[in-house]
Design a protein around this nucleic acid. Sequence first.
RNA 1: GCGGAUGUGGUGGAACGGCAUACACAGCGGACUUAAAAUCCGCCGGCGAAAGCUUGGGGGUUCAAAUCCCCCCAUCCGCACCA
Length: 803
Amino acid sequence: MSEHYVHLPIEEKWQKIWDDAHCFEAKDDYTMPKYYALIEFPFPSGAGLHVGHPRSNTALDIISRKRRMEGYNVLFPIGYDSFGLPTENYAIRTGIHPAKVTEHNMQVFHKQLKMLGFSFDYSREIYTSDPEYYRWTQWIFLKLFEKGLAYKAELPINFCTGCKVGLANEEVVDGCCERCGSPVVRIVRSQWMLKITEYADRLIDDLDTVDFIDRVKTSQKNWIGRSTGAEVTFKIEGWPEGLRIYTTRPDTLFGATYMVIAPEHPLVEAMADRIKNIDAVRDYRAKAARKSDFERSELAKDKTGVMLEGVTAINPANGKPIPIWISDYVLMGYGTGAIMAVPAHDTRDYEFAKTMGMPIVEVVAGGDIEKEAFTDCETGVLVNSGFLNGMQVEDAKKAMIEWLEKEGIGQKKTNFKLRDWLFSRQRYWGEPIPLVYCEHCGWVPIPEDQLPLRLPDIEDFRPADDGSSALARATDWIHTTCPKCGGPAEREIDTMPNWAGSSWYYMRYCDPHNDKCLADRKKLDYWLPVDWYNGGMEHTTLHLLYSRFWHKFLYDIGVVGCPEPYMKRTSHGMILAEDGRKMSKSFGNVINPDDLVREYGADTVRAYEMFIGAFDQTIPWSTAGVKGCRRFLERVWRLQDMLNDGQGVRKEMAASVHGCIKKVGEDYERMKFNTAIAAMMSLVNDFYQNGSVTKDELRTLLILMNPVCPHITEEMNELIGFTTPIYASKWPQYDESALVKDEIEVAVQVNGKIRAKMMLPVGMEQDAVRELVLDNPEVKPWIEGKTVIKFIAIRNIVNVVVK
RNA sequence: GCGGAUGUGGUGGAACGGCAUACACAGCGGACUUAAAAUCCGCCGGCGAAAGCUUGGGGGUUCAAAUCCCCCCAUCCGCACCA
């Protein structure tokens, strides 16, 4: 009899063996086929690993371990996204330097990850707050600056009142900070911006070249928000340049009965002396400016606005004079900040026109504009529209754009929802922006050979009340000389957002210790792109988008040789607490991976997290389920006591074993880990049913299970007498012929209802099947006295249709 | 409002258009045990007297629908005046 399964010594033993053998380290052997598997590197928070990490990590650990057994040179790296606000906030509370906190937290993470037995290449561990790492983050920023893709602009920005920091568009959720939940207000501030918009088209178009799950593609597309239409200039008396608008419905130009400009539109001040009610207009603008974005959208139902009295625009299609309004439902940041209002065919314009009593003119027939705006582009036909009359909407759009271009009053135009990326943070714990400001020379980059520009050591990490960074107090650091003219200059005191370091970390993994460049080009060419990247949906329009942008930029300047960083992107579902709520300290329902590993073992935790349900689905935790997986491992463990003297795969077990090899291999690839484990459970059940198992059968099971449960399988492999460890073994091939049976059970339906089950030889002629089936005593009563009008025999189903 | 996802036994979940409920959890029974736990072996959706009905609801396509199409309902997650 074998000893009981005691996980702890087994897991420690094998983790040490793997370490000593360096068996999971990627080799720089370019003759081997490569495989690059990546999970999002964790932020080393003080709370340590949570149960979500093992879900994603185990999934790609399974793939990595399987690939190695298939003969690939696998890069499966790990690191830490170690800059960031939570660490700085902790430093503010405790006075402990963020670098120290980070160091400690990373050690905790490292230990926890090892304890779970992930086959990371720990020799390539990196962290973004390492000066040797952020040196290259800064270098990339300088390249962006050099190419004009980083610029400083005085703009209204999203400012978190809690974190006292500016936020990117992507970081604002429901008008609040995605991190701390405090309200976000608009303040005007001089900020560094990155021109991600320059890459908008390619970020959409190149999605066709990669294998991302559809959800990810769709949300990136929607976030970038490409729309096509036209820009049209309306003449305005007394303002020669006219008012330029953007519309996606140029076909409805004849129906434009007024115009609306955003409150901040320059027209207001440019024409201030002609606007009779300028005080009322300015008053409206001031009120709009005070509203937060959140309030603006909250009040979306009630349209407000003021008409500019004394100013008239001309509808270029029909020459009619139309009024101009200002209203905050038009946004300065999109298109031209001005629209033509076609109330008959736009719901917002319709509402506004109803509220303000503006005329509504139907130009697309097919709806009932008495009731609501008719916005359908499929069925409508143009009316009241001169040369467009009788056309379908799509044809009318083309015809109108043609006309506008010929007349020189407009042209085709594409617009995006995507805005440039707000890149400054008024914080200490981030990469310093490697630029100085000189009175004479303006913004000057620090010479590359002076990188990294290190963060200065300071003691007080609090941001100033005016929202500027704690770095503002590091006056010795700030005052410097201009690299260009040698005169006095000041350093930028904003730092980069935490998205900076994570935008290129997968490159550094290819060559983590290089001190000449961010990574050797040969190594990048070998390893990139990442073959499989798994991560959270919450990063779809943040990290994933940002890093695609940086990658494309680095591709353009010749640093990398492929246009996309990630070939395949998948996403895991969230794990909820047992009560169905989010795991949260405040609910007191957090499950700690450490405790689980101690009590049940890493293999059980890994198996459970893979067995819990469909990988991409949100799922509640179940302690009973964990115990079930532990029970499964014990059941596997006891197979040692059932060994017989047989060799190879016995005939009576061949179908089970080879079926399992096939199923498990396919399911791992499709991320159907739950059904892969179910298949292995079934195989184990089959062994128990049989009463014994051969060494070779057992070893096959152990290899199949190894990617999920690496420790127990290695231990058993050794215990039953094999000297080659599984990590150095080959992934098994299934024998197709073993899956082919002589006979199969066929379900016989009459008119779609099961009436009998029969064993039939495989490959029987259709006519012979028919004869046997129709003669079956269980079938006969259902067809007696009726005519068989159809007989369908497919795979293991026969359907007899009678009348 | 728009976009995405989900809806199957007491529970987590399976099911290339082809036997709905694999695999587990919970429950029940048996063996073993002085006993319990553990283990092993079985049983195990609901309604209906039955024929049957039953994958959120209603239609449709099909020899055959959880799966495909149309219309609803519910829940969750994004985005939100983007002209």
